[in-house]
């Protein structure tokens, strides 16, 4: 009798000990990846440096989308709005108000987060397709607003951040500087994702993702959690947009509010594995790397091939690579066809 009651407890203690290795392992791996990224910089010529910086940028964007779309399950199809708001805030602050870049960067994050709170309070009451369409509408609408605020934003002609002469508040960072800046943002986003995934907050988001009524019945303030997550996601996306604006020097509404950027974030997260930390990271690196590889080797066909690969990946691995590997390792079922069957409606 006594041995019987003790057994599950012993099992639990060993699981908890295993958890410690599981807990620290990914952080160690992340540190190695960071050192590798820093070491890599010296090996690249400037064009490659820019390409890799773009990969880092998309890692941060994908991680940010994953917070609201992956963990909480609110697929934001207007995520680029935070990118645009952040980018335009920095451009306006630097050129009109003569703020330094670093000050503008930080403020852009908060402005984007505030914007997320303002649109999140009404929109996060919607679910599924309704939320997706509403956020898409907000992003498209903001592009028009920014285009028409000609005095402030330069309208469709764009706005140029002063990088030389007396008006330059912060010296242009150059390829080396932007490489480090985007690497920093990628690291920040992965750390945020990692902390969310393993803590109380992440469990609340996953519960909300699965069933909001059940989550609320367990004492989770679902409204507050969703708005907070949207704000955090908007904050990171805003920082990335601000950095992008400075890197590009001249920005246009069509580019800063380009729906393609949202689509890329979503594809990266979905292919990698939504609701995981590794998924968006792998998805962003793989897709951006593949895209660049195809562009250089199949100049005419590159979008065609990339599209085909995305379709095959989404059909065979609807839950994303990381989630597929986790399930396959647990159930010892590696067949892709069985996987497709499992997820059919």
């Amino acid at each position: 009798m006594s041995t019987l009651t003790k057994m599950p407890q012993q099992g639990l203690i060993s699981t908890l000990r295993g958890d410690r290795a599981k807990r620290l392992g990914p952080w160690a791996l992340g540190l190695v990846a960071l050192l590798a990224a820093l070491g890599l910089q010296g090996q690249l010529y400037s064009g490659q440096e820019r390409t890799v910086a773009t990969i880092f940028m998309f890692v941060a964007l994908a991680q940010a989308w994953n917070l609201i779309g992956g963990f909480a399950g609110y697929a934001s199809f207007g995520q680029v709005v935070f990118f645009g708001v952040g980018g335009y805030f920095t451009a306006v602050a630097m050129s009109h108000w003569h703020f330094s870049f670093w000050m503008s960067l930080l403020l852009s994050g908060f402005v984007a987060a505030l914007f997320a709170v303002i649109i999140g309070i009404p929109l996060l009451r919607l679910k599924g397709h309704y939320f997706a369409i509403a956020t898409l509408g907000v992003a498209e609408g903001m592009r028009e607003v920014v285009t028409n605020l000609t005095d402030l934003t330069g309208g469709g002609a764009g706005i140029t951040v002063p990088t030389v002469g007396n008006n330059a508040t912060t010296a242009y960072l150059g390829n080396d500087g932007f490489y480090l800046l985007f690497l920093g943002l990628a690291v920040l986003s992965v750390i945020v994702g990692g902390l969310v995934a393993r803590n109380k907050f992440g469990y609340a988001l996953r519960a909300i993702n699965q069933d909001e009524d059940a989550a609320a019945a367990l004492g989770i303030n679902t409204t507050r959690m969703k708005v907070l997550t949207f704000a955090l996601s908007g904050f990171i996306t805003g920082l990335v947009g601000a950095s992008y604006a400075f890197q590009q020097v001249t920005i246009f509404p069509e580019r800063l509010f380009d729906v393609d950027i949202t689509v890329l974030m979503i594809i990266m997260v979905v292919i990698g594995g939504s609701g995981t930390v590794l998924g968006p990271l792998l998805g962003a690196v793989a897709l951006q790397f593949l895209s660049e590889f195809l562009r250089q080797n199949f100049t005419n066909l590159h979008t065609f091939i990339l599209g085909a690969i995305i379709i095959v990946a989404v059909v065979l691995l609807p839950q994303g690579a990381v989630n597929y590997m986790r399930e396959a390792r647990r159930t010892k079922e590696f067949s892709l066809l069985a996987n497709v069957r499992k997820y059919r409606l």
Binding site: Y203, A217, L218, G219, G275
Partner: peptide
Amino acid sequence: FQIVKPFRGMSVRENVAVGILYGS
């Protein structure tokens, strides 16, 4: 709930832990 509402993607233990994390 009359229709069971488990949180899929979490283990049974984690399902219960959510209630403990957010209870009074």
